[in-house]
Simulated assay, not measured.
Amino acid sequence: MASGTGSTEDRSYTERLTRLGGARWKQVLDVQAPYRWNLRRHLGGRTVLDVGCGIGRNLQHLDPSSVGVDHNAESVGLCREAGLRAITTDELESSEEMIPGRFDALLAAHLLEHLPEGAAADVLRPYLRFLAPGARLVFICPQQRGFRSDATHTVYFDDDLLARTMREIGGEVVDQSSFPFPRAAGPWFTYNEFVTVGRLADRR
């Protein structure tokens, strides 16, 4: 399944993320509560490299030592305004935050489905040098309804494709799940997610 038009690099995409995340009904119901719990369950207490951090929706709930990376300078600016550690992809080589082996986890949440077909492993590999041996890897992607909800989505990542991507970057799959509801909810619930957790092989 593939589609995708539009860009995640410009101001309009940042504005869209901000508008969707700030919807009043989402604030009243605290719809992010179960997702925060799941994020902390997998990554709590770890120094995380959040690749494709966007406006910091996940980054704000990770350990304060964590760092977000995004190619959208507007989104990174909002992260910094909120007091989060974030850099653009252009700053990757020059940032003092990026020390080889510093991070003991990598998060790619709602990133892979935006990339060109076949590009996921190549996009992730440059970040591996910043991970400690045995680092935890967490990939999160939308299921069917969520995939169709955004014109910038390009490739549909299910459990099989997520597992393949994990292996392509030298990781081993530890767990795969559907969250917050079972897989059957994917066609009708926009926010049902595939969650793949892995471990980076010790490269020493």
Score class of each variant (00 low, 15 high):
residue 60 Q to G: 11
residue 55 I to C: 08
residue 118 G to E: 05
residue 39 L to S: 04
residue 53 C to Y: 01
residue 91 E to P: 04
residue 38 N to M: 14
residue 124 L to F: 08
residue 57 R to V: 14
residue 156 Y to G: 05
residue 43 L to H: 02
residue 32 Q to R: 11
residue 133 P to I: 06
residue 44 G to V: 13
residue 43 L to P: 07
residue 121 A to F: 08
residue 66 S to Y: 00
residue 139 F to D: 04
residue 52 G to V: 03
residue 80 R to P: 07
residue 34 P to A: 10
residue 81 E to L: 14
residue 41 R to F: 09
residue 140 I to L: 03
residue 145 R to K: 15
residue 133 P to S: 08
residue 34 P to F: 05
residue 53 C to M: 03
residue 70 D to H: 01
residue 162 L to I: 01
residue 125 R to N: 02
residue 82 A to N: 07
residue 163 A to R: 13
residue 149 S to T: 09
residue 92 L to N: 03
residue 146 G to Q: 02
residue 140 I to W: 00
residue 86 A to K: 08
residue 48 V to L: 03
residue 53 C to G: 07
residue 151 A to N: 07
residue 29 L to T: 15
residue 92 L to P: 08
residue 152 T to Y: 04
residue 74 E to P: 00
residue 97 E to V: 01
residue 89 T to D: 11
residue 62 L to M: 14
residue 60 Q to I: 11
residue 54 G to Q: 05
residue 152 T to S: 10
residue 99 I to S: 10
residue 65 S to G: 15
residue 62 L to R: 04
residue 55 I to R: 11
residue 40 R to K: 14
residue 147 F to S: 09
residue 57 R to E: 14
residue 141 C to V: 15
residue 100 P to A: 14
residue 35 Y to F: 15
residue 86 A to P: 11
residue 111 L to S: 03
residue 156 Y to T: 03
residue 155 V to Q: 12
residue 155 V to K: 06
residue 138 V to M: 14
residue 34 P to D: 10
